[in-house]
Amino acid sequence: MAGPKAGTVASSTVRPDSPTFWKEVLGLPGGEALATCIQCNTCTSSCPVEALEPEFNIRRLIARIKLGLREDVLSDEALWACARCFACVARCPKHVRPGDIVEAVRHIALGEEREGPGPRHARAFVESIRDGGRIHEARVTLESLRLAGLLREGWLPARMAWRGKAPRLRRRPLKSVPEIRALLDAAEEGA
């Protein structure tokens, strides 16, 4: 985020910038049941991420979507902290499927080519499928973490290599990669 301009006071207030944001999410796979949320908080109380990182609050995410805080939601890096455990989906008494709503919102963020570690990882992952049919772990890890991130791993890569545990540096793509790529392209066109 850009720093405040000279002469202005940084304020943490937000304004609803998209009154129909909820409908946008409602129309995506995973977002269908958004409207019936009664904010009972069973989702957040079930969330193992929120217990460690309160910035990711799934109930509040739903409230923000319903209120129309589009930019606030999409620019929030915490959106990418969901670990997809789906405890919220299993326990939500209203069958709102909160974890699937995260999927829908991330879809919008990816469509807008948002930046950050989350979108970068998702794109690296998808690129890896396009290129090899399956995941090339070494490459996805490198592209997601970048060199700096990899260095922060310290000796772990070396230890893994020593144990023969390291992901392969080169992976042969599936024979059917052209087929898979054609399928992904076709799905993209259709969407």
Binding site: Q39, C40, N41, T42, T44, S45, S46, A51, R59, P93
Partner: peptide, 21 residues
């Protein structure tokens, strides 16, 4: 304010996990 995610045992007691709004 908030409904719990789980009730689990802890020794001879229980623990209720809940996020208070």
């Amino acid at each position: 304010r908030g409904l719990p995610g789980s009730v689990r045992p802890a020794g001879d007691r229980l623990v209720v996990d809940v996020d208070d709004m």
